[in-house]
Amino acid sequence: MRERWQAAGVLAGVLFMVNVVARLIIRFGFDGDDTTAADRVSLGMFVVIGAILAALTFVWARRRPAAEWGTDIAAAVGVALVVTILVGPLLVGENPFGGGAGTFFAQIWLYFAATGVGVLLGYLLAVALGLDHRSQALKRYAELKAAKPHKSVRR
């Protein structure tokens, strides 16, 4: 059980570090008035977060049932979201609520959208290729049933 939550904690830490790197690039790499560059870096951050979750979901969907990995990813994304929204701005000297309620809630919705799309793409790719846990279990069951002769033939 410890390894399971440790993996979720590491994932939350990685997602938070992606955000920290993006915030530091925006802070030190561009002028404070250049919102276009900040928007591009933020978009890149959301793409990286989605790609990480897509790859991880693809790998976890092959090994474990959806109920297990879904819980782990949901917990990691929830923790990473809270830390990213509340602690991330403080690391670069900003107020988490400085942009107003609209900006605060927009960050939350964008984060959920990026993570949701990433998880969905990873899982759908695993299902489409027949590599997810359930498809593999059904394949093993079909092979097992096809290999056994009917009861009337067995002795």
Rank of each mutant, 00 (worst) to 15 (best):
17 M>R: 11
143 E>I: 09
29 G>R: 10
124 L>D: 09
32 G>A: 11
100 G>Y: 09
119 V>G: 03
99 G>E: 08
124 L>Y: 12
100 G>D: 11
14 V>E: 04
100 G>F: 13
93 G>V: 13
111 Y>L: 06
45 M>C: 12
88 G>E: 03
154 R>P: 03
154 R>C: 08
41 V>N: 13
81 L>R: 05
95 N>I: 11
12 A>H: 00
64 R>Q: 14
99 G>W: 08
105 F>R: 07
50 G>S: 12
98 G>L: 09
113 A>N: 06
49 I>Q: 06
15 L>N: 00
113 A>I: 11
138 L>Y: 13
115 T>S: 12
59 V>Q: 10
66 A>R: 14
66 A>V: 07
150 H>Y: 10
121 L>T: 15
74 A>V: 07
77 V>F: 06
118 G>V: 04
142 A>I: 05
62 R>E: 12
47 V>P: 02
36 T>E: 07
102 G>V: 15
125 L>N: 09
63 R>C: 01
121 L>C: 14
80 A>N: 06
96 P>Y: 15
1 M>N: 04
135 S>V: 00
7 A>N: 09
37 A>W: 11
152 S>P: 02
155 R>Y: 04
153 V>G: 02
35 T>G: 09
102 G>R: 14
108 I>F: 13
106 A>G: 06
129 L>P: 01
121 L>W: 08
56 L>D: 07
75 A>R: 00
35 T>Q: 14
45 M>F: 03
111 Y>F: 15
140 R>M: 07
149 P>E: 04
4 R>Q: 03
82 V>R: 02
84 T>C: 11
116 G>T: 01
108 I>V: 15
